[in-house]
Design a protein around this nucleic acid. Structure first.
Lengths: 338, 338
DNA sequence: GGCCGCAGTCGAATCGATTCGGCGAATCGG
DNA sequence: CCGATTCGCCGAATCGATTCGACTGCGGCC
């Protein structure tokens, strides 16, 4: 069931079949109908590999995700979903490539084997050698997140610095004087995870601007770790009355630790952060947080990537998003702990 | 940077380069080294499309997931991760294809465009036309889950019937007489979602065997829906003392509804179910549940798929898993509610 | 009437790999 | 010393599409 078979049965040449399908040259109405009839009857589809070979493009984009062993956060899952969705709308397929740890071969294949027309990179570090490798291989790519050289690539990102600063300002407005920042897991931050560092920067800046005192800690990306982290925090820093966080997966555990310490939210203790909307709403109580527009970000990333594929020499484009903070009731006036 | 360029620089023919790389015919040690040197210098990788065209296989498998709009449960995310992982170990890439809703084109491309060597199908319905389409297109595939005709395909699945029955028996052993089954969302079950129906069957069977009374309800797949569901359940069925569930995403909400009703778990009310281990452990309190071996299932699915690709005419193989129930403390002796 | 142009179609080249048949040189046995 | 193997390598065909140049009628224009 290849194009030659269709051509034979329709009594035309293979090129005519091709032109009838793509419309790149005129084909008479009658011939077109005859060809279409044969195609419908045999259920023919062009062989993707042959087309890719000749056209030089695969109609596929690569999505580089954190390795499977590390669980995706709700936010990351949102990115994946929206990228797949946006790609499907553009009739593109998505090739999944775990990167990091033992899966370098997969990344290598995607980058260098011309399997994809472009790549979307997730969970980017401040210094990330994958950027250089993609640039070196001449593969168009777009980051969800960016490195410490923002101008070297196209990306879509959240302005974690401003978002966390806003959280701190919001808490300061409510009278809080001692605030903690709960970051993502320590290995990630140590490896130069951008959002982690930018959140710290925004935290420090806001503290200074408002003359507050603060403490920064890392927590593993799950509820148990969050609970342990906050238990320690409360014990070591009795003066704290509020937490700001970018670790959505740990928040449920933070709540538990607070409840166990007899601290009601928001009556005795405030929590604010950055999280996927779905996640923030499903926490109990729903978290006051900047709602990450994961759907938009995935769609934007795909859109930027298509532009880069179309014109690889065009200047890089960047998109820094600062979603507003949705007040959901986990922040309130400061009350000194007794 | 194609094979001809390598051949020219190494002073050999293209076929020799190919044989040097694949080892399918002997090549002298010296020639091999010379070729390898050129390859390393130029960073050459064979063009995937050309290879796929000639070899007739793409070294890629398709993974058909629920549409992006519907959020993946933790369990499904576990399947995706483990499939990607197992595929990477076998040097296979994974093409993601959302199916259902507006994304039929994507599924169609994967099935009929010979873009993949085989397909893994998730969230299968009792009557699922995708099975017929895959069979019709002659694409090897394996299900994570199966239809009402188990013999028509290869699959890996959980024995939801036995698992839920075990939960009920466990609750019966503890003296519970009135048990509720909380299923996945109503649309899914109405559409013939296999696990939903098999869970019901196991529930009914166990009730009959032990002479218990029961009620079956559906809940949306998130905490808020779970909370609303259980609030209604408690109001309408004051005799209930326990819940069995396959809706892991709703459990956190169920806990809330119970707590709001003044029912402590497990002192006043018991909960047991089927859930991803990670999820069960991160709930508070950790859920007594059959731990879904998502990693194993993904790996098995890939393994079965590779076998089917290697020998499409071999008889179908099936794998029905019944993981044991891990007691984590959300079940206890029945106490009548007052 | 001759020439130009266009619609419609065909044949052949091409993309970059794999793979089969065959050819020359080296090796081996009698 | 000669014929038969074996080893190493080459050239050409092939996979299934796209695409370019060219050919054939046919109508319009001067």
């Amino acid at each position: 069931m290849n194009i030659g078979e269709i051509a034979k049965r329709a009594g035309v040449s293979r090129s005519t079949v091709s032109y009838a399908l793509t419309g790149k040259r005129p084909v008479s109405e009658g011939t077109k109908r005859r060809i279409q009839a044969v195609i419908d009857e045999l259920g023919y589809r062009p062989n993707a590999a042959a087309r890719a070979l000749k056209e030089g493009r695969t109609r596929t984009i690569g999505l580089v995700i954190p390795p499977a062993s590390r669980r995706l956060t709700d936010m990351q899952l949102g990115f994946v979903s929206s990228v797949v969705d946006a790609a499907a709308r553009a009739d593109l397929d998505v090739l999944l490539s775990p990167s990091g740890g033992e899966h370098e071969r997969s990344f290598e294949r995607v980058v260098t084997g011309r399997r994809v027309d472009g790549v979307i990179l997730m969970e980017i570090r401040l210094e990330d050698d994958r950027v250089a490798r993609l640039n070196g291989a001449g593969v168009p790519f777009v980051g969800i997140g960016h490195t410490s050289h923002p101008e070297e690539m196209s990306w879509v990102d959240l302005d974690y610095e401003t978002l966390i600063a806003s959280c701190v300002h919001h808490l300061a407005d409510l009278g809080h004087r001692h605030v903690a920042l709960v970051n993502r897991n320590a290995e990630l931050v140590a490896a130069g995870y951008g959002p982690g560092h930018r959140a710290q920067a925004g935290f420090d800046r806001a503290l200074a601007e408002r003359g507050l005192h603060g403490v920064r800690v890392c927590s593993g990306d799950d509820a148990q770790a969050g609970q342990a982290c906050v238990e320690r925090l409360l014990a070591e820093h009795p003066e704290l009355t509020a937490i700001a966080t970018i670790n959505e997966a740990a928040v449920a555990g933070m709540y538990r630790a607070l409840a166990a310490a007899g601290l009601a939210v928001p009556a005795h203790f405030s929590v604010a952060g950055v999280a996927a909307r779905h996640w923030a709403e499903n926490l109990h109580p729903p978290l006051t947080a900047a709602d990450v527009p994961a759907d938009d970000m995935g769609a934007h990333a795909v859109e930027l990537l298509l532009q880069r594929i179309a014109d690889p020499l065009a200047p890089h484009r960047r998109l820094l998003l600062t979603p507003p903070i949705s007040l959901r009731g986990t922040t309130g006036p400061a009350r000194h702990r007794t």
